[in-house]
């Protein structure tokens, strides 16, 4: 320490002024999390049954996964909850907000992805999963739609079909056939989201009221051949990078929602998130409380409910824990 004697007169107690240790550092299949709160639940308990869905990305193939390319950083003047709720249950906005981008890049015509404001076909082709301690999943169930927005999906479909039997062995038939390769939106409460298929991994850093710095990476399975990995990095940047054809639609929407909610009159009103309220249930073979289809506000409700539970609790003891409709094998 420079000039410890001369400037501090030797009176500083260095043991009291070090870096604050991170109370808990734990990892799950390559994802490392830190927490400053020694009383927080363990990572395994915190994640709960969303692990069953996370494994569809992290553990489908024996080689595991990697983030590739540089970090893509962008500043949004938005409340951090808007991008999270936009992605956690994002089927409703696709056909309208991204109409131009979908027309430009969609190469696979799948009913589940057609559903938009005007087109009701395929509304039931996926599911919205919540009731998992604030974590959420949006899933198509066709085993290939993740690659519907690539200029040439064929090498990806070939890769999926060449390896699907291996994934059946590792994860069982339900996940291997219905989820692996499908478009999935996975939200780890509160601010981490990953989209297997479009293959991006994203963390939102709140930077004060109405400000978010969004960090995105492309992600690949390590068992994929290098040319496929390269196509993923390229396509992730094309669709959801800083000049991404899709991402460039979302940013202004999120900023405008934030701006318009600031006025006094608007702030007196409740947010309406009732779409498909009361239309969720257990679904054979899948954990969680599940609403049919990619278009609903089922996930958003659970997101805000978790937010309310956490902000209203004085300590972790007061925070309820729920993993609804557990599978017997997950007990």
């Amino acid at each position: 320490m420079p000039l410890e004697k001369e400037a501090y007169f030797g009176e500083i107690d260095r043991s009291k002024h070090g870096l604050v240790p991170v109370a808990q550092v734990q990892s799950y299949k390559g994802l490392i999390f830190g927490n400053f709160d020694p009383d927080a639940p363990s990572l395994v308990d915190y994640l709960g049954d969303v692990k069953w869905y996370l494994d569809v990305w992290l553990d489908a193939m024996p080689g595991g996964t990697s983030l590739v390319g540089e970090t893509q950083k962008i500043d949004f003047p938005t409340n951090w909850k808007f991008p999270v709720e936009n992605v956690c249950g994002d089927g409703y906005h696709l056909g309208w907000a991204h109409h131009a981008a979908m027309q430009a890049v969609q190469t696979m015509d799948l009913a589940g992805l057609r559903a938009g404001n005007a087109d009701a076909s395929g509304l039931d082709m996926g599911m919205s999963v919540a009731g998992l301690n604030g974590h959420m999943v949006l899933a198509a169930l066709d085993g290939q739609s993740g690659y519907a927005f690539y200029p040439n999906p064929k090498p990806f479909v070939d890769y999926l079909e060449a390896n699907r039997s291996k994934v059946v062995e590792r994860l069982g038939a339900v996940r291997a056939q219905k989820l692996w390769g499908s478009q999935l939106n996975i939200t780890i409460f509160p601010n981490l989201q990953l989209l297997p298929g479009l293959n991006w991994f994203r963390v939102y850093h709140p930077k004060g009221p109405g400000k978010v710095e969004q960090w995105t990476w492309a992600m690949t399975e390590n068992d994929m051949p290098n040319d496929i990995k390269g196509m993923i990095l390229d396509n992730q940047c094309l669709t959801f990078g800083p000049a991404g054809l899709f991402d460039n639609d979302d940013g202004d929407n999120l900023a405008a929602c934030t701006e318009q909610s600031r006025g006094w009159r608007t702030a007196q009103m409740d947010l309406y998130t009732h779409m498909a309220l009361g239309h969720s249930a257990r679904r054979e073979g899948f954990p969680g409380d599940i609403a049919t289809g990619l278009v609903s506000e089922h996930n958003q409700r659970y997101f805000y409910r978790r937010w309310q539970e956490l902000t209203g609790a004085a300590s972790w003891k007061d925070v309820p824990s729920y993993n609804l409709n557990r599978l017997a094998s997950e007990g």
Partner: peptide
């Protein structure tokens, strides 16, 4: 290993794709 990645990595076709979107 796979390089940095690109915000724009465009051929003429891809520029045309962006323009198609902007003019839609």
């Amino acid at each position: 290993v796979l390089g940095s990645g690109y915000i724009f990595n465009d051929t003429r076709d891809r520029l045309a794709l962006r323009i198609k979107r902007l003019q839609s």
